[in-house]
Write a protein that binds this DNA or RNA. Structure first.
Lengths: 211, 211
DNA sequence: TCGACCCACATTGTTGAACAATCATTGCGA
DNA sequence: TCGCAATGATTGTTCAACAATGTGGGTCGA
C-alpha cells in the first residue's frame, strides 16, 4: 500500500474515533494489525505528525494527539485569523458560496433528524467551503489541519450535540450576512461564532478536568 | 541520526541552495552521501514533503520543490492573509517588536556591507518576528513553511540584491507605522510591501521563462 | 517502611539486504 | 519515422537484526 494512502487511511480511522485521543500507537502491534511493515507505518506516522494528528516523542513513539487547553486556544486563534480574514475579503458571488449553502442545509437536515455526527461533518464542511472562498490551496491545507486537530478535541469531549447543534443557526447567520450585508458583517458574525465555539470547548474541557 | 534531525539537516541544505530547485533527489545516492540508510532518508523525505520543500511523486521519487508562478501567487496570497491579519490585531508593546527591530538593523547593516544573503535572512527574520506577534505556534509554523517555499523561488531567481535590497526600507516603514501610527496603518504598509515583492518575483519568473 | 540504585525487559531508531512494482530508455522491426 | 517490446534503473515494501533508549520491577540498605 502506498504510504500516502496508508496515512490517509490512518487519518480517517483516527478522525472516526477508532483510536482514542492520547492513545499510544505501538509500531509493532499496529503494523501487524494493519498488515504493513513497521517501516511503512513509520513513514505514515511522519506524515500524520506533521498534520498534528499524532504526537511523536523521540524514543517514546507516537500517540494520538490530545489537544490541551493551550492547543484549543491556539487552534481558535488561528481559525479566527484565517477564516475571518478570508471572509472579509470574500465575494458573495464566489462558487463556493453554493457549497456553503449545501453544507448548511445538510446540517439543518441533520438537526431535524437528530443525527449529530452528520451535523458535525456538515458544520465543518461549511467552514471548509468558507476557506475555499480564498482560492488558496495553502490556506485550505492549513485550515484542514486545524479542523482535524479540533476534531480530536471534539472526540475527547464526545458531546456532539452541545458542540454542534447551537452553531447551525450561527452558520446560517454568517451566510445570510455575507449575501445580504456584505463581507465585513459576515466576518463579524463569524468572529462571534468562533468565540462562542471556543468558549464551549474550553468549558467542556474544564468540566472534564482538561482533555 | 534521528529522523527529525535528518529532516532539519536536509532542510537547511536545501534552503542553503545546496540542491537546485527541481533537482531530483535519488534515494540510493543521497542516502550514501549522507551516510544514512534508505529507510531513514525516506522518513525524512515525508517530513520535507509535508513542508512543501520537496515534491514527492509516487514511483518517481522526490525532487526539490520548484515553485511555479501559481505557487508564488498562492504563497503571497497566504502571506497577505496571515501577516496583514496579524499586524492589524497587533500591539506595538509586544516583545517581538524588539526582535523585528533587531532584524531590521541587521538587514540595514547588510545593505551597508553589500551582503545580500544576510539581508535576505534578516528580511525573513523580520517577517518571522512579525508573525510571532500573534503568539500562535500554528500560525508561526504555517508561515515558516511559506517562507521556506518562497526561499526556493528566490533561489531559482538567484538575484538576491534586487529581491531583497528594496524591501529593507519598506520593512522600516512597516515597523515605524506600527509604532507611530498604529496597527492598521502598519497593515496597510505591509500589504504594499507584499504586493510589490510578489510583483518582483513574478517579473523575474517571467524573464526566466518561469521557474 | 521508604527511597535509591541497578538490572532485565520492551519499544523505538536505524541498518542492510532482498524482492516486487513501476518508470524510463534503448534498440529493434515494420 | 513510428510503434513496441526488452532492458535497466529507481522506487515501494518487507523482513530480520541490532543498537539506543526508556520503563518498570526488584533488591538492598537505612
Amino acid at each position: 500500500m502506498s504510504d500516502t494512502t496508508l496515512a490517509d487511511a490512518l487519518r480517517a480511522r483516527i478522525i472516526a474515533g477508532e483510536f482514542a485521543p492520547g492513545e499510544r500507537l505501538s509500531e509493532t502491534s499496529l503494523a501487524a494489525r494493519l498488515d504493513v511493515s513497521r517501516n511503512t507505518l513509520r513513514e505514515a506516522f511522519r506524515v500524520l505528525a506533521q498534520h498534528g494528528l499524532v504526537e511523536h516523542v523521540p524514543n517514546r513513539g507516537v500517540s494520538v494527539a490530545s489537544p490541551t487547553t493551550a492547543d484549543v486556544v491556539d487552534i481558535y486563534r488561528a481559525r479566527r485569523q484565517i477564516e475571518c480574514g478570508i471572509l472579509r475579503d470574500a465575494s458573495a458571488l464566489h462558487p463556493s458560496v453554493a457549497v456553503m449553502r449545501e453544507e448548511l442545509e445538510r446540517a439543518e437536515a441533520g438537526v431535524e433528524a437528530g443525527d449529530w455526527p452528520v451535523v458535525a461533518a456538515a458544520n465543518m464542511g461549511f467552514h471548509r467551503a468558507l476557506v475555499a472562498l480564498s482560492d488558496s490551496p495553502r490556506l485550505e491545507r492549513t485550515h484542514e489541519q486545524l479542523l482535524a486537530e479540533l476534531r480530536l478535541a471534539f472526540l475527547a469531549i464526545a458531546d456532539f450535540e452541545s458542540l454542534h447543534r447551537p452553531f447551525v443557526t450561527r452558520n446560517r447567520a454568517v451566510l445570510d450576512a455575507l449575501v445580504d450585508r456584505g463581507p465585513q458583517a459576515a466576518a463579524d458574525e463569524l468572529e462571534d461564532y468562533l468565540t462562542e465555539s471556543e468558549r464551549r470547548v474550553l468549558g467542556a474541557y474544564a468540566r472534564l478536568g482538561r482533555g
